[in-house]
């Protein structure tokens, strides 16, 4: 349910077309942030990671959008008012996109709940013999092993450093070569781990999705429907504001 709502929310961010609807979008994002009670510092950090992409799109939009009213021209670069608008819109759009996905999915949902959601959403595809449960299982395992592999990389890196590998100097080729002593042991240990995990799962009689019950079955609560209702209202509001066509429209 949460997954569907977040997808709807993302669709809404793309539907926004004018100043008013963008203002509403920004307002909603801030409100959601406040409700979620996630420390603002963490949220800012997730934004910072994609700062470059955000700025890059903004600049591109600024420079390459052609419009009627020219703001100023410098050498061969023409900046139009439309360009400024679309740059700002793009920026807000990406920002809200990142905020909402990280808010809904990474910070407030456990990976297990997430894969459960994917599994149940994809379950209609079971009719066409798609191994839905296996997909979900693979995702859970992949997510689960990210920190383990990172730790492993760290350990191997330290060990090779102790044997005199220098990762931080030399040209590109030299640096790439310095990675070999890390990648090979890492791959080997990943395969070994996979093997061991498969063995352990078999020892506990895991045999795929058929007839498997869930430990935590998620139900739809009243609050879920309230959320859905709010989402629909929000979407309608965005569409309505778009039609007003005040100020500038894309």
């Amino acid at each position: 349910m949460k997954l569907i709502l977040s997808i709807l929310y993302i669709v809404c961010t793309f539907l926004c077309k004018n100043v008013l609807s963008f203002a509403l979008l920004l307002l909603s994002a801030v409100l959601l942030l406040l409700i979620s009670r996630i420390p603002p510092r963490i949220v800012l950090r997730s934004l910072r990671a994609l700062l470059f992409v955000m700025l890059f799109t903004a600049v591109l939009n600024l420079l390459f959008t052609k419009g009627e009213t020219e703001l100023f021209a410098f050498w061969r670069i023409h900046v139009y008012v439309e360009g400024v608008y679309s740059a700002v819109f793009m920026l807000v759009r990406i920002m809200v996109l990142i905020l909402s996905t990280s808010l809904f999915l990474t910070y407030t949902t456990t990976p297990i709940a997430l894969t459960d959601a994917i599994e149940s959403l994809l379950s209609p595809l079971r009719v066409v013999h798609l191994p839905v449960h296996e997909f979900a299982m693979m995702m859970t395992i992949a997510l689960r092993f990210i920190p383990t592999l990172m730790e492993e990389t760290d350990k191997i890196m330290n060990a090779q450093k102790a044997r005199g590998v220098d990762f931080s100097s030399g040209g590109l080729i030299k640096r790439a070569k310095a990675l070999i002593p890390i990648l090979i042991p890492l791959f080997i240990s990943a395969f070994r781990r996979a093997d061991e995990l498969a063995m352990a799962m078999e020892c506990r009689c895991y045999r795929g999705g058929k007839g498997r019950t869930k430990m935590r079955v998620s139900h739809l609560h009243a609050s879920d429907f309230v959320a859905l209702l709010m989402m629909v209202l929000f979407g309608a509001a965005v569409l309505y504001l778009n039609r007003l066509g005040l100020f500038y429209t894309l």
């Binding site: 191997i156 090779q160 450093k161 102790a162 044997r163 005199g164 220098d166 042991p185 240990s189």
Partner: peptide
């Protein structure tokens, strides 16, 4: 630091996983 690391040799825990 590299020179130091040649003077102080360190064998980490389970060093067999670093063979490549």
């Amino acid at each position: 630091m590299q020179a130091i690391r040649f003077r102080v040799g360190l064998v980490m825990q389970y060093p067999e996983y670093q063979l490549f």
